[in-house]
Design a protein around this nucleic acid. Structure first.
Length: 418
RNA sequence: GGGUCGGUGCCCGAGUGGUUAAUGGGGGCGGACUGUAAAUCCGCUGGCUCUGCCUACGUUGGUUCAAAUCCAACCCGGCCCA
């Protein structure tokens, strides 16, 4: 891998076929470095595949590391082929799943796909876009229903014939589920095959994925060979740990930072990632030169948070977020909070006279009024910096509350507005 | 299709007729502490403008003064057999 440029090798978890230097001399075609040189020489950019299943509505930082790498390929002159798995999303990728995924409707999938593209930068300020949507020849967006929806049964049978039950069960997720007696639906076996077939359909030279995609990416190689194509390279990136520092970043685990998240929220989540994962965040989410950063872990956290926020929101908003975060978490007195950029909560839906616990839930700070009651009793609620002690405290009308800052815990603030 | 075991609160998992939102753990939230955190300690962890009232133990119905606990059917799943 010493041949590879830094933009490519930064954060790499796996590359295959990973030929050794000796093999590289024997068959240069087997190394990505050689392939890159070839592409340059012949002015034929590589087709770099990245598939996404539009199963949710938010793209978070965990996904973004793949898009960042894809962008790096674009910037180096290659063609990003972004595959929207509108067809496969309806099966659900079994990877990493302990249970069969719910199947989505075509309409839901399409709606998700649209929001994904917008979050990736379609029609947005190019300076903050994750992908290059504007330079000609750098991006191809394809939906895999283009070729998958048209498959007839003989084609499906041919596809199924390229793999075996044994191979499928060798896949870790399937093996675990089978071993533990968790059900596996037959259609889930189709998923890796269909994803692999995508590589055939677009004639991919290289596929990007998380390390959990190794099986599926390798399947693409098999199928390409089966169809007489030159097999793609597989380039895998680590799975970004979530804010808990342990499990992977995933919306269902609630440990994510969304790309679309407001600057303050983004910054304050990131500035306290566990020390154990800080270096990974720096490597995977930024292009900062690690050795030139301060060594103090707290300072490194802040630098990382600031940079990631800057990428999405620009220099000024990031700096403001940093300042606000310092005020809110540090002092957290009423007046300090008043200076900072605090999200507003509307009192319009509140019926007065309002008791304190009801107010918390009506304004959306707590999920339920019962929870609000508990939070107040637990001493976690402040109004303009003063602790509320009585959940039954009554507020006669909106005028008594307007403009005040309601605080839950250390990090959740709402300015009450009408 | 047959046999058998099982489906409990966010998750795992006790509980097998009787005061009680239902032991315990995890996770989550809040408090103290700290470099924000982590670790540790403490509190909370169904809903409702709530000194009380509602829902809750796969679904529906039944037995009983009384059921998560007994019975029936159905739905879903594991294992074994076909």
């Amino acid at each position: 891998m010493a041949f590879l440029p830094a933009w490519l090798s930064r954060g790499l978890a796996d590359l295959f076929p990973a030929a050794s230097a000796a093999e590289a001399l024997a068959d240069p075609d087997q190394t990505l470095a050689a392939r890159l040189a070839q592409a340059d020489a012949s002015s034929r950019p590589l087709r770099v595949k990245l598939g996404i299943d539009p199963t949710g509505s938010d793209i978070h930082l965990g996904h973004s590391i793949l898009f960042r790498k894809l962008r790096a390929f674009q910037d180096a002159g290659h063609t990003a082929v972004l595959i929207i798995g509108d067809f496969t999303a309806r099966i659900g990728d079994p990877t990493g799943k302990s249970a069969t995924r719910v199947q989505l409707s075509a309409a839901e999938v399409e709606a998700n796909a649209e929001t994904y593209l917008v979050q990736l930068g379609l029609g947005q300020d190019p300076a903050r876009a994750l992908l290059d949507f504007t330079t000609p020849g750098r991006l191809e967006v394809r939906r895999n229903s283009e070729w998958l929806a048209a498959m007839d049964l003989p084609a499906v049978i041919d596809l199924l014939g390229t793999s075996t039950v044994g191979q499928m069960l060798a896949k870790e997720d399937f093996a675990n589920r089978y071993g533990s007696g968790t059900p596996i639906s037959l259609h889930e076996f189709l998923y890796p095959l269909l994803q692999g077939y995508d590589s055939v359909a677009i004639e991919a030279d290289l596929e990007l994925g998380g390390t959990d995609q190794k099986f599926n990416v390798a399947m693409g190689r098999d199928l390409q060979r089966h169809h007489g194509q030159r097999p793609q390279f597989g380039l895998l990136l680590p799975i970004l740990p979530g804010l808990d520092g342990v499990q992977k970043m995933s919306k269902s685990l609630g440990n994510t930072v969304a790309l679309s998240e407001a600057p303050l929220s983004m910054y304050s989540k990131l500035e306290k990632v566990p020390d154990a994962v800080l270096e990974e965040y720096l490597t995977l989410l930024t292009d900062l030169a690690l050795e030139s950063l301060p060594t103090n872990p707290r300072e490194r956290q802040k630098a990382m948070a600031l940079e990631v926020t800057r990428q999405r929101h620009g220099v000024e908003a990031a700096a403001a977020a940093q300042a606000d975060a310092a005020r809110l978490v540090g002092g957290a007195s009423g007046s300090a909070a008043a200076d900072a950029e605090v999200p507003e909560a509307s009192l319009a839906g509140v019926n007065f006279p309002a008791k304190a616990f009801y107010l918390l839930s009506a304004v959306g700070l707590c999920a339920s009024s019962s929870e609000a009651r508990r939070q107040i009793l637990g001493g976690g609620v402040k109004l303009d910096g003063e602790k509320l002690v009585d959940p039954n405290q009554e507020f006669a009308d909106a005028a008594a509350l307007q403009g005040k800052v309601l605080q839950l815990g250390k990090k959740t603030f709402r300015r009450l507005a009408f």
